[in-house]
């Protein structure tokens, strides 16, 4: 049994005029001590997936239509809010994409981190304060700035405070939603190392949401590629990087500006993700896919295990472009 098992999760946002199919029948596993990378376009449903685990989806408009989220074998979706609150912060913690949602504007950053240590780490107030200063230093912020308020910090510094808070409670599962997007690469390297230490020392499992394939290459054991709320490819890091099979995955690798070559123009995947309130019937990627044929528009491709542990949802695996 994996520490976290998501089974056939479907989440919708029910709006006045439409229903947004944000997450469609997703299944994922994360083992203790392992890192799963969740990669996908903006709006693909990554944050929605993460918030479902945390039990923090905004109701309304969000609605879990079906599925289970098993943590240590217990379904988080069926748990009482009180028990969930206990798990959140003690066993599962999340680094939010937008740091301000996790920070209290009227407390100093030092107070906020100390609070986490005090509440979740059984530290006395005085110890918690000491620990909070250590933690700040670990994420590269000078301890004397602990008396400042979040608005006095730059975006990246706020993010580091949030990271410090999430790491403070030494969770069993850490969900990190674009944790280092706002950081420069030298600090990013330090933060990733810190997260890695956590993984090694406490056998923490991690769900890492990112669009930086470089970070995925350096930190993840497995990778799930999500498109329009569906998994389109899922496998070990070697399978995804050495043998990407879904045209979307292949397109992602092709979009990255290279450090070694100079190109005039980048080659993005053309077009935009379809409106999640109005998804195509067939393959959700068919509107942008260079390999798409009629069959792709008509019926949803099956999610196939093409080699052990490597899943792909595409009709034309290994196919060529059409025109």
């Amino acid at each position: 049994m994996s520490l976290l098992e998501i089974k056939n999760l479907t989440v919708e946002y029910v709006l006045r005029k439409s229903v947004v199919h944000a997450v469609n029948n997703i299944s994922l596993n994360v083992d203790a001590g392992k890192t799963l990378g969740l990669v996908g376009e903006t709006g693909a449903g990554k944050t929605t997936t993460a918030l479902s685990i945390m039990g923090l989806l905004p109701h309304p408009p969000a609605k879990v239509q079906s599925g289970e989220i098993l943590f240590e074998g217990q379904d988080l979706l069926k748990m009482k809010e009180h028990d969930l609150e206990n798990i959140r912060g003690n066993k599962i913690s999340m680094i939010f994409q937008d740091p301000m949602t996790a920070l209290n504007p009227v407390l100093t950053v030092g107070e906020q981190i100390a609070e986490t240590f005090h509440l979740h780490g059984n530290y006395s107030r005085a110890e918690a304060e000491k620990e909070s200063l250590k933690m700040l230093e670990m994420v590269g912020i000078r301890p004397e700035r602990s008396t400042e308020y979040p608005h006095q910090f730059s975006g990246g510094m706020k993010q580091r405070v949030v990271i410090a808070m999430a790491l403070a409670c030494k969770p069993q599962l850490l969900i990190a939603d674009e944790p280092t997007t706002a950081l420069d690469v030298t600090i990013q390297a330090q933060v990733l190392e810190l997260m890695n230490d956590l993984k090694v020392t406490f056998n923490t499992a991690m769900l890492l949401i990112t669009h930086d394939l470089g970070i995925v290459a350096e930190t993840c054991d497995d990778v799930a590629i999500i498109y329009a709320g569906q998994l389109v490819e899922y496998g070990s890091i070697e399978q995804i990087f050495d043998n990407p099979l879904h045209p979307y995955t292949i397109g992602l690798f092709g979009s990255i500006p290279s450090l070694d070559e100079d190109v005039e123009r980048l080659k993005p995947i053309p077009g935009l993700m379809p409106d999640p309130a109005n998804l195509p019937v067939g393959c959700k990627f068919c509107t942008r896919c260079s390999r798409a044929v009629k069959q792709c528009e008509e019926a949803e491709p099956e999610y196939l295990e093409v080699e052990p542990g490597h899943f792909v949802r595409c009709n034309r695996i290994g196919g060529t472009d059409n025109g």
Binding site: E137, G140, I141, R142, E144, R145, D184, V185, T186, Q188, A189, D212, L213, G214, I215, V216, A217, E218, I237, E238, F241, D242, F253, I256, L259
Partner: peptide
Amino acid sequence: KGLLSAIPIPNIHHEKVKVKLQGELSSPI
């Protein structure tokens, strides 16, 4: 130099020597 060597490369077979920048940030105050 440290900055350039810390760039994560999207290639799992890329072996790279990283110049690790340790130590604390200077305070801007």
